[in-house]
Write a protein that binds this DNA or RNA. Structure first.
Lengths: 349, 349
DNA sequence: TTGAAAGCGCTAACAC
DNA sequence: GTGTTAGCGCTTTCAA
C-alpha cells in the first residue's frame, strides 16, 4: 500500500510517469483534459501520496524549515512557535522543532541535522550570540536564516524580527507618571541579555528626559526570576519601613516573572494592590491575565512575531531580497487589575 | 559548498563512492584503516554533510517522526512535546511539529503531509475520536502510531500512553477525607472527554466505597474552564449562605483551570484558603506552583508521558511487538499551599 | 499532447 | 579491502 509509486499509477492509467507527474503538480499545459481526468481518478481512488523525499532529491528543496527554540516549556516560546507554525503550514511548509534546552552542543547537533535534511530555511529563536559559528555553517550552505528576538553579530547585519523594547518602556512609564505623586521602583533584569539591557537603558533615558530624581524613581537589580523579584521587593519594603528609603507607590518589573515576585512580596506584608502599590510587568505571559487581580503589563505580540519571522523566512526562501532586513514589532500596554485607572484617580482627587 | 556530494569526496580521496559511504556510516568492515583515515580527513576538512533525502530515498526510512498536537499554547502540551522531543533526538530522530488548533481539516492535511514526508512514525497527542479515519490512513501506509493521552477506537486496541486518572482521584480523595469533618465539593469536567469522565466516575466510585452521603460530597458540573469553575463555586457559596445547601470546607476540581476559578470565587467573598476552605486541582499545570498560595494538585507526569510515547514509538519503528500495547502512568499527589497539613490539623484538635 | 530517458545523492549487492 | 552497478521515486528536458 505504502509502496505505490508514480510508476504504478502510470501503468494503471496507461500513460507515462511524466504525465502522472504533470497531473500531480497541476501543470496547466501538457496534459489533455481526458487524460488528466483519467489519471486523477486513479490518483483519488488509490489515495496515492508522492514521496516528498524523491521529489526533494530531484528539485533540491525540501519544503520544510527548522525552528530552533531554547525551551518550549517556557511560557513565552509556544506563542512564537505557534505563530511561526501557522504561517509556515499555510505556505505548505513543514516544521522541524528543535528544542535545545539552551545547550550549545545540542543546538549544534540540531543545526547539523537540519543541514542533513536540507531544510529550506531556519528560524533561530532567542539563541545566544555564541551561536554565531553555527549560524555561519548554515550560511555557508546557502540556507536562509531568520533571527527571532535575538541578536547575533552586528545588529541588522542579519535578517530578524525584534521587539521595540524602548517603546514598551516609554508607554509604561508615561502611564505610570500620569500620576503626579508617583514614586516608582523599577526592577531591572540581568545585565547580560540584550532585552534586559534595552529595557533598563530605556527607563534611564526616560528618567533623564523627564528629570526624575531619586525620590521618584529607584532601580533595583533583578535577574528575571520570580524569586529575585520577591527578594528585592521585600528588602526594599524593609528599607522603607526603617526609614532608610523613600516610600513608593508602584513597582515596574522588567518582566512578568519578577512582577509576580513583587506581588508575592507585597502580599506577604499585607500591602494592597493596586490600592497602595500599583504593579506593572513586561511580556504578558499567558498566566498574567489569570492572576487575581490580573497583571497589568507591556504585552509582546508574540504570536505575531513568530508569524513575522516565518513570513520573512518564506520571502528569503523565495529568493527575494527584502529592503529592510529587520522587522521591529511594537509592544502594547495592557492595563488590567494591578494598576489604577488614572481617570478615576483624577476624578477622586 | 552546499552542493558537495559523496562523489566529490570520493574523487578527492581517490576512492569509490561506496567506500566513502562505508566510512560515513561507520561500517566496521570493508575499509582499510589507512583508506578510512584518508577519507575521514577529507570529510572533516570539507565539513561534508550527506543528504538525508537521498539516503532516505534509498533506505526507505526518514529518521523523522510527526507529532500531532492540538495546541502548543495550552499549558500542558509543551511538557509532553519536550518529553517526546528529548527521547526522539537522543535516538537520532527529528520531529515534525504539527499544531492543529484542534481543527480536524488541518489535522487531516498534516497527516497527509506526514505520509508524503514518509515519516517513520507518528505520535497523536489528545486527538478526538473522530480522527479514527485519519489514523487508519497512517496504518494503511504501515506507519506506526502511538496515542498520547487519548483514546481512539476500542481502548487498548492501539498503542498508546495514558494517565491512570482513577489512581489520582483516589489519592486526592483519600487525602481530603483524612479529615473526619470533611465536606467536599467536587467540580467535574465536561461529559464528552474521556479524562473528564474517568475522573468523575472515580470520584463516584470512591464515594460509594466510603459510603459518602450528600452531606459530605456534592458534585457540581464544570467544563474545564476557569470561568465555569468560578461561576459554579460562586453559586454554591450563595446556596450555602442562603441555607439551601450544606456548608463545605474543601473544593476538588477536575482540572487546575477550574481550581483557579474556584480560588477566584472564594477570594471574591473573602473566604480564606486553606484556612476556611481547602482547594485541590488536577493536572499540575506549570502555573500551579506560581500561584500564591501555590496550588495543591494531582500532578500528571507530563514530560515522562511524552518521553514514554516516544520510546514506545521507537520500539515500534524498530519492529518490536511490545507485549503490552499500552503504558499507563501514575499521577502523583502534590501538596502545596491550598491544603492544610493533616498532621498539624490532628495535633491541633 | 505525450513519452523516453537521464539523473538528483545515496546505499547495498555483488564482483574482483 | 575496494570498486562497479543498479536502483530508491520523482522531475524535467527533449523528441516524437
Amino acid at each position: 500500500m505504502g509502496k505505490l509509486t508514480i510508476g504504478d499509477i502510470a501503468a494503471q492509467a496507461g500513460v507515462s510517469k511524466a504525465t502522472v507527474s504533470r497531473v500531480l503538480n497541476d501543470r496547466a499545459e501538457g496534459v489533455g483534459a481526458e487524460t488528466r481526468a483519467r489519471v486523477r481518478a486513479i490518483l483519488d481512488v488509490t489515495g496515492f501520496q508522492p514521496s516528498a523525499m524523491a521529489r526533494g532529491l530531484k528539485t533540491g528543496e525540501s519544503r520544510s524549515v527548522g525552528l530552533i527554540v531554547p525551551d518550549v516549556t517556557n511560557p513565552f516560546h509556544p506563542l512564537l512557535v505557534s505563530g511561526a507554525e501557522q504561517a509556515l503550514s499555510d505556505a505548505g511548509y513543514s516544521l522541524f522543532l528543535c528544542n535545545t534546552g539552551s545547550d550549545a552542543a545540542k543546538q549544534g547537533d540540531y543545526i547539523r541535522v537540519l543541514i542533513d535534511k536540507r531544510v529550506d530555511g531556519v528560524i533561530l529563536d532567542s539563541v545566544g550570540f555564541e551561536a554565531e559559528a553555527q549560524v555561519r555553517l548554515l550560511e555557508r550552505e546557502g540556507i536562509p536564516v531568520v533571527l527571532l528576538d535575538c541578536v547575533i553579530g552586528k545588529r541588522a547585519q542579519r535578517h530578524g524580527v525584534f521587539l521595540d523594547n524602548g517603546h514598551g518602556v516609554e508607554e509604561a512609564m508615561a502611564f505610570l507618571f500620569l500620576r503626579p505623586d508617583r514614586k516608582l521602583v523599577f526592577i531591572s533584569g540581568p545585565p547580560d541579555v540584550s532585552q534586559s539591557v534595552d529595557r533598563r537603558e530605556s527607563v534611564e533615558a526616560f528618567a533623564r528626559e523627564w528629570g526624575l530624581d531619586g525620590g521618584r524613581l529607584t532601580t533595583l537589580d533583578g535577574d528575571f526570576t520570580l524569586e529575585r523579584g520577591c527578594q528585592v521587593t521585600t528588602e526594599w519594603i524593609r528599607s522603607c519601613s526603617e526609614g532608610r528609603a523613600p516610600p513608593f507607590n508602584a513597582v515596574f518589573a522588567a518582566n512578568d516573572m519578577m512582577a509576580l515576585g513583587a506581588l508575592k512580596a507585597l502580599r506577604q506584608v499585607g500591602m494592597s494592590v493596586p490600592g497602595e502599590v500599583e504593579v506593572m510587568g513586561y511580556d504578558d505571559i499567558p498566566f498574567a491575565r489569570l492572576l487575581d487581580p490580573p497583571l497589568s503589563t507591556v504585552a509582546q505580540p508574540a504570536r505575531e512575531m513568530g508569524a513575522a519571522s516565518a513570513e520573512l523566512l518564506l520571502r528569503l526562501i523565495a529568493g527575494e531580497k527584502p529592503r529592510r532586513k529587520t522587522v521591529v514589532m511594537k509592544p502594547q500596554l495592557v492595563l488590567r487589575g494591578t494598576t489604577l485607572d488614572p481617570e478615576i484617580l483624577n476624578a477622586k482627587s
